[in-house]
């Protein structure tokens, strides 16, 4: 301790402190940002529906209405199906945090059990898409090549060819799908949350949805070229070229032109 105290006025002390602070911040963020979300098979029972009804009344009814009939700013949930509840609640989009252009993903507010019960309750109100089984969303069982062709036609215009997402209008955007849990990808396609259109089982069969999940999973290895710069296209790449690339060139020019000491 004494040795450290003696060196606190050292020329490089601020640099060391800054690096330490950054490391601590990064570590804390990483610890909080990790979320665990696993695809689960939903088995409904009357108990679940009853428990879900209570959860709904306590957490959702203020906007969606006591019987999920919908209000001015919140849609009716009759017939949206368990898949919709799974997607919205397991990705933390619902309950909504603030009245924003779109509900953003955040750490889920309900555990797996409560999500399942809410889904069971909403599913009991009217028929809708169900939560897929683990088998239906297993990337290992899909064909990534077929998934790529389907992704390019159906998904890439909004989520970008890389899956990194892109902008829509008025502050809305298509989020990145690269780190989305497979069951959430499946339920998003099946229900069409927010601005996203619906891709039902006629448009994309369950097997085709699994192919798309396999394609997205195959992107996790990264790009062979190395740094992908966010994969958002020419904007990110141009920024690097101008700021980093040209900055280095200017620094070299200044160095070459400066007099040697």
């Amino acid at each position: 301790m004494k040795a450290i105290a003696a060196r606190r006025h050292h020329r490089q002390a601020p640099v060391v402190l800054l690096v330490l602070a950054l490391l601590v911040m990064g570590g804390v963020y990483a610890a909080f940002a990790t979320t665990s979300a696993d695809a689960t098979v939903v088995t409904q029972s009357d108990d679940d529906v009853e428990a879900g009804r209570k959860l709904f009344a306590a957490n959702c009814a203020s906007c969606h209405g006591l019987n999920a009939e919908g209000r001015q700013n919140a849609p009716s949930l009759v017939g949206v199906g368990a898949a919709s509840v799974y997607f919205q609640v397991s990705t933390g989009r619902m309950p909504m945090q603030a009245d924003a252009p779109q509900a953003e993903a955040k750490p889920p507010q309900f555990g797996e059990e409560a999500t399942r019960q809410l889904a069971a309750y909403v599913a009991s109100l009217g028929a809708g898409p169900a939560i897929p089984t683990e088998d239906q969303v297993d990337p290992a069982k899909g064909d990534p090549a077929s998934g790529m062709a389907l992704f390019r036609t159906n998904c890439s215009m909004c989520h970008a060819a890389s899956g990194a997402g892109g902008a829509l209008t008025q502050g809305k955007y298509a989020p990145s799908v690269l780190n989305t849990d497979p069951a959430a990808i499946y339920t998003a396609m099946a229900t069409g949350p927010q601005s996203m259109p619906v891709f039902n089982d006629m448009t994309l069969t369950p097997e085709e949805k699994r192919d798309i999940i396999a394609f997205i999973d195959a992107q996790k290895e990264g790009a062979p070229g190395g740094l992908d710069l966010g994969q958002i296209g020419p904007v990110g790449e141009g920024m690097w070229a101008f700021i980093v690339g040209m900055g280095l060139l200017i620094a070299c020019a200044v160095w070459i032109g400066a007099k040697s000491s």
Binding site: N154, P197, N200, M202, T203
Partner: peptide
């Protein structure tokens, strides 16, 4: 099939 196209669907 027209009946299979749900509201909100997009088909290419």
């Amino acid at each position: 099939r027209a009946a299979d196209v749900t509201i909100g669907s997009v088909v290419h």
